[in-house]
Amino acid sequence: MMTNPITDQKPVMLRVMEKKTENTGFATLFFEYSLPFRPGRFIMVWIPGLDEKPYTISLHDQDRFAVTIEAKGIFSKKALTLEKGDLIGIRGPFGNGFEIKPGQSAAVVAGGCGMAPLATLADHLPDITTFIHGARSKEFILFPGRFSVPREFCTDDGSLGHKGLVTDLLEKNIVLGKHFDMVYACGPEIMMYKVFELCETHGIPCQVSLERYMRCGFGVCGACVCGKQVVCKDGPVFHSRDLRKMKDFNTKALLKSGKEVDLSQYFSWRCQ
């Protein structure tokens, strides 16, 4: 099939080239297509007749890209029933992506499926000195064996690595005297907030990737506003200098109706 170029305008249907089951509840869909891309940007994935949702790119090279999906709601469960050859709509990429400076010594901190956007970052970053990955338990660790830099693991139940939080490991590294020019983090918002706080305490800049309910993807409809920022357009990656001014970070988000609620209420809706 001849494919029209994928743009940030109307979606283009692509065939699933390969589906790889990752681990409990996760699968990665691969597409044969050369997508202009920077780590941290995202695409809108459309299942006709069902819905359209933003997903980060979890793998990207010259002639293919992939999204990694966790079976959570109606949309993601349906997405994971797709097989090789099935069609799915894609538009994008959208958003700003991570700011990367060569020669910087970086820490990468991933929580759960927050690993997905950081995976492409890790592939592109030559100077990761510390790579931390936390998950509920051993079975939820994504992409084993993928990275050249070894990861420090932590789990909620202690089934792999440190029993506790990613911030415990990050703090230990800092206290032991490791120097970081930049910390990159993605995971639950409370985790990113804790990483941000820790970085502020130690004077280290960080970048985190936020999530809000999105519609247009290009900064017009206002569904995903967070303080004065529009997450789909100004973000999803925000630097410490933005986060300091962002009073809704780790506090508020809008529901689909536009109703402003506490983050806990927002995430209990998002996880339905």
Binding site: Q9, M44, D51, E52, C216, V220, L255, S257, G258, K259
Partner: peptide, 25 residues
């Protein structure tokens, strides 16, 4: 009111087409 499911706003290059569906708290 939640408004409609996505896709709700699409850029067509010469302008947009949208049916967000009047979401409101």
């Amino acid at each position: 009111r939640d408004g409609h499911k996505n896709p709700t706003v699409i850029d067509l290059g010469c302008g947009m087409i949208n049916a967000v569906g009047l979401p409101s708290p």
